[in-house]
Simulated assay, not measured.
Amino acid sequence: MKTYRTAAQWLELLQQRSNFKGTNIEFCQHHNVAITTYYKQRALQAENQQNPNLIKARFQRYIITLYSDKSNHH
């Protein structure tokens, strides 16, 4: 299952991190986010803060891969 988040939703999620008492991994598990996606989005937010006029169409929607059981039951 894939979940799409807008840039604004990512910003809100990343802002919630400062109030979360656990590790980055625990935060990602709590929000069903892959840890690699979290770090990628955090880097993109930092880049956007350095250059707020930078808008890239390919970053308008973000994909998070949620892990699920991939075994076939036939």
Rank of each mutant, 00 (worst) to 15 (best):
M1F: 07
T3H: 09
Y4H: 07
Y4S: 06
Y4E: 10
R5P: 01
T6F: 05
A7M: 04
A7K: 10
A7V: 08
A8C: 02
A8N: 09
Q9F: 05
W10H: 04
W10G: 02
W10M: 04
W10S: 02
L11W: 01
L11N: 07
L11I: 05
L11R: 10
E12P: 01
L13G: 04
L13S: 03
L13M: 14
L13A: 08
L13Q: 05
L13I: 14
L14I: 05
L14G: 01
Q15F: 00
Q15C: 01
Q16S: 10
R17Y: 05
R17F: 05
R17T: 02
S18N: 11
N19E: 10
N19G: 10
N19L: 07
N19T: 07
K21D: 11
K21W: 04
K21A: 13
G22Q: 04
G22D: 05
G22F: 06
T23E: 01
T23A: 03
T23R: 02
T23I: 03
N24W: 00
I25M: 04
I25G: 01
I25T: 10
I25W: 03
E26M: 08
E26K: 13
C28M: 05
C28V: 07
Q29H: 10
Q29G: 04
Q29R: 13
Q29I: 07
H30R: 12
H30T: 12
H30I: 01
H30C: 09
H31K: 13
N32Y: 09
V33F: 06
A34Y: 06
A34F: 03
I35N: 03
T37V: 11
T37K: 08
Y38T: 00
Y38F: 15
Y39S: 03
K40T: 09
Q41F: 02
Q41M: 15
Q41S: 00
R42F: 02
R42N: 03
R42E: 06
A43Y: 08
A43W: 06
Q45W: 04
Q45P: 00
A46H: 13
A46E: 14
E47R: 15
N48S: 11
N48W: 05
Q49R: 12
Q49S: 10
N51Q: 14
N53C: 12
N53V: 12
N53R: 14
L54T: 07
L54W: 10
I55Y: 11
K56I: 13
K56R: 15
A57T: 11
A57W: 04
R58I: 11
R58A: 09
F59W: 12
Q60V: 09
R61D: 10
R61P: 00
R61E: 14
Y62E: 06
Y62D: 08
Y62W: 12
Y62F: 13
I63E: 15
I64N: 15
I64E: 14
I64K: 05
I64Q: 13
I64C: 14
T65W: 08
L66S: 14
L66W: 08
L66C: 14
L66K: 15
Y67M: 07
S68K: 13
S68G: 13
K70W: 03
K70S: 08
K70N: 11
K70D: 09
K70Q: 08
S71N: 09
S71E: 09
S71F: 05
S71T: 09
N72I: 07
N72K: 04
N72Y: 02
N72F: 03
H73Q: 00
H73A: 00
H74F: 04
H74D: 07
H74G: 04
H74W: 01
